Amino acid sequence: MGNISQFAGKTKPTPHRIESEEEALAIARELALRFSDRASERDLERVLPHDELDQLAQSGLLAISIPSEYEGIDVSNVVLAEITAILSEADSSIGQIPQGHFYVLEALRQHATEEQKQFFFGRAMAGDRFGSALSESGDKIIGDDKTQITGNGAGYRINGRKQYCTGVLFADWLAISALDAADRMTISFVPRAAEGVRIIDDWD
């Protein structure tokens, strides 16, 4: 999955550490009550839920799918789906945002090196949010990327444009798919504040 870039993040409070699936469900219900309060107003006035996503991250819910050997509780897919449903019933806009985050955590579980798992699961436990930047305009099939990754000195340069990147507006890390020089698919983890990254909020 590539090399780990140095993290240049901001200081944030340590999230709550959830201990069980039952506690995760209870916290989701508590947040849902808060999120439902102004959900229609946010939609009508196009108010982005930055405060609500901060609350979600601080609640510990974004770390519940992390494997237990990396200090998570590795909730079942059934519980993860139920938590998504609870949040979506309160505010469907908020409910869909963690999908990309949980996808990235699962990709790490399935494909990352041990060093990458230690680092990025640690960042997720510390409250960092991940957004997926995979889709491109004109994609006929999944993985039909035009974005390229090439060597650039000791590191890499990614060149391309993504769209339908739900959640990246609120993410600390972007998981960006790109083809290398041999046309192999890669996923790179890029800090949101990295030089050259431009996030355009152009929802119509």
Rank of each mutant, 00 (worst) to 15 (best):
A178V: 04
L134H: 10
G167H: 07
A32V: 00
G2R: 02
S40Q: 13
A154Q: 11
G100K: 05
A181S: 13
I141D: 13
R46V: 14
I94D: 00
V104N: 04
L80I: 06
I18V: 12
R129Y: 12
D144Q: 10
V79E: 06
E82Q: 15
E41R: 09
G138W: 04
G60E: 02
A124P: 10
I158M: 04
V197E: 08
S59N: 02
A8Y: 11
H50I: 15
E52G: 04
L80S: 12
A81G: 04
I4K: 05
S92N: 14
E136W: 01
I199C: 00
A124S: 11
Q55E: 13
F121E: 05
Y103R: 15
H101S: 01
I66K: 05
E115Q: 10
A182N: 13
L31C: 04
V78I: 11
R109S: 15
N159V: 12
G153S: 05
E23Q: 13
W203R: 13
R161I: 09
D91A: 09
Y164L: 14
E71T: 12
Q110M: 10
R123N: 06
S36F: 00
I18R: 02
A57L: 07
S92T: 09
Y70C: 01
A175T: 04
W173M: 11
L105I: 05
L80P: 02
I187N: 02
L179Q: 06
H50F: 15
Y103P: 02
E89M: 09
Q110E: 12
R157G: 00
G72I: 00
P67W: 02
S59V: 03
K10P: 02
V79F: 05
E69W: 01
S65A: 11
T14L: 08
I199D: 01
P98H: 06
L169M: 13
I158K: 03
R34K: 13
L61V: 06
V190Y: 08
G100E: 07
G95M: 07
G153N: 03
A194R: 07
A194D: 07
G95Y: 04
G100I: 04
E106G: 08
R46E: 14
P191S: 04
A107F: 07
D202T: 06
S65E: 10
I86G: 01
R42M: 14
T113M: 05
T11G: 00
T14N: 07
V190R: 06
F102M: 11
Q96C: 15
L62M: 15
F35P: 02
E89G: 15
S132R: 11
L134N: 09
L61C: 06
D172S: 01
L87F: 06
L179G: 09
M125S: 09
G155M: 03
E21Q: 09
S5A: 14
V75T: 10
S68T: 15
A63S: 15
A181E: 15
S20I: 07
E41Q: 12
L33Y: 08
A178P: 06
F120K: 02
L105M: 13
E71F: 09
G131R: 03
G160L: 03
Y70W: 14
Q148V: 15
A171Q: 05
